[in-house]
Design a protein around this nucleic acid. Structure first.
Length: 230
DNA sequence: AGCACA
């Protein structure tokens, strides 16, 4: 007989939604969601990202892809990806997200959770504004080690490449980046392993290379490419 | 460690 029951053990079956834990709990929810989006959008359209700061849900997030194939790629390729100094742990979510159920017509409203919604709903707009500002502050958490840029640099002709395996040579990197028009040079800094700068003639050329190489893995590691700060 | 639907 074939195994009709897809899910006997601890394996969780494919789902549009990935469940991520071991996230750095010091990161503010808004910034966390933004950064997750930046890192996972390469796998396909993201419908929703949910994260909460309550005790039971800190350090975790649910990221809903439009397509299951995107979720599968994300689970495989981003497993252990260093994110705010901690390796992400990624699984498929155990259950279907509401947003998916609504789309496929299977949504049935669940019991309303306890009266969660009652406590002081003050004007906290000011706090939110402050929090947004903090997302731009590199001094946050006192470290420069995050693989996530605090604020995305505007498009320009130089790419900033992160999560490069430490034993990668400039020559090796050049192999990948020089196949795109306008390539000028790769620069690596001895004192700062794991990163590289790649320069192109102009912004469009840099953009083309970035989009093509964004999903490149070297060894086990998923490259992360953004524009360099100038 | 912790699987929700702010």
């Amino acid at each position: 007989m074939e195994p009709e029951v897809a899910n006997q053990g601890n394996e969780i079956s494919p789902n549009n939604t990935i469940y991520i834990n071991n996230l750095n709990e010091k990161v503010k929810i808004d910034q966390l969601k933004q950064s997750l989006h930046a890192v996972f959008k390469q796998f396909g359209t993201i419908l929703e990202i949910l994260a909460f700061k309550t005790l039971k849900h800190k350090g975790q997030a649910w990221l809903v892809f439009k397509d299951v194939a995107s979720a599968t790629a994300a689970v495989e390729k981003m497993q252990g990806f260093p994110f705010y100094d901690k390796p992400m742990r990624i699984q498929y979510a155990k259950t279907k997200s509401d947003i998916i159920a609504k789309a496929d017509g299977t949504f049935v409203p669940r019991e309303r959770r306890k009266r969660h919604e009652e406590k002081g709903k003050k004007r906290k707009d000011q706090h939110d504004a402050n929090q947004a500002g903090m997302g731009l502050n590199p001094a946050y958490a006192g470290g420069a080690k995050s693989v996530i840029p605090e604020a995305p640099a505007p498009p320009n002709n130089i790419l900033f490449v992160q999560n490069v395996p430490h034993d990668t040579t400039p020559m090796a990197l050049q192999m990948f980046f020089s196949q795109f028009p306008g390539f000028k040079e790769v620069r690596m800094v001895e004192a700062k392993p794991g990163i590289a700068f790649v320069e192109y003639g102009d912004e469009m050329q840099a953009t083309v290379a970035m989009q093509s190489l964004q999903s490149l893995k070297i060894g086990q590691q998923q490259l992360l490419i953004t524009y360099a700060k100038k």
